Computed example of a mutant assay.
Amino acid sequence: MDVSIKITDRNGQSHQVLAPTDMNMNLMEVVRMYELAEEGTIGICGGMAMCASCQFYVLNDFSLPEKSDEEDAMLWEAFNVKENSRLGCQIQITSEINGLEVELAPE
């Protein structure tokens, strides 16, 4: 099954995308799959929660899984962090996130 996610890129363009729940993907990989960020500007660490290049803001009221200590620590060091900041590599694509709306943080 696919879930629908609305992703606003770094240029302010909005994209409604479908992401498969059966491929063990995360939000950062979905952004890469649809090429919504310039090559080499997202997921630089390969999804290890070590670079914050996949930081995004949650725009709608959504209950996402709790942040891990690694994600929390990385966001503590990152730039442009807001209350609703999360790392895309830490958000798995599951049926629970159908309808999620996010915006990529500035590079």
Rank of each mutant, 00 (worst) to 15 (best):
E107H: 04
N98I: 02
I93H: 02
L36R: 09
M28Y: 12
K82Q: 15
N11L: 15
E29R: 03
G40R: 05
V30H: 01
E83P: 06
Q90S: 13
L59G: 02
S85H: 08
E96Y: 04
V30R: 02
S63M: 12
I42G: 04
Q16K: 08
F56M: 08
E35L: 12
K6I: 14
D2S: 15
K82H: 14
V81E: 04
V58S: 01
A78G: 09
M28G: 12
R32I: 06
T94H: 03
E39C: 07
L104P: 00
S95C: 01
K82T: 14
F79A: 11
R86F: 05
T94R: 04
E38L: 10
C45R: 05
I93K: 01
L27Q: 04
P106E: 07
V58G: 00
P20S: 14
V102P: 01
V3W: 09
M1D: 15
Q55C: 00
N11T: 14
I7F: 12
E83Q: 10
S14Q: 12
P20C: 13
L18V: 09
L104A: 00
S95L: 04
E103L: 00
Q13S: 13
C51V: 09
N60H: 11
I5D: 10
L87S: 12
G47C: 10
L100H: 06
E107G: 02
Q16W: 03
A78H: 11
V30M: 06
L87G: 12
D9M: 07
Q90D: 05
N80K: 01
M33G: 00
V31E: 07
I97A: 06
L87N: 09
N26P: 09
V31R: 03
T94V: 07
G12L: 09
S68R: 04
N26G: 10
S63Q: 13
G40W: 08
N80S: 10
D61A: 13
Y34T: 03
V30E: 03
D61V: 03
G47L: 10
D2F: 15
K6M: 14
D9Y: 11
A78D: 07
D22V: 09
G99D: 04
A19R: 02
C51N: 05
V58Y: 01
L18I: 09
M1T: 15
A73W: 14
G46P: 03
P65S: 15
K67W: 02
G43I: 05
I44N: 03
A73Q: 13
M74A: 13
G46E: 11
N11S: 14
L59W: 03
I5G: 08
E38F: 11
T8C: 08
E96K: 05
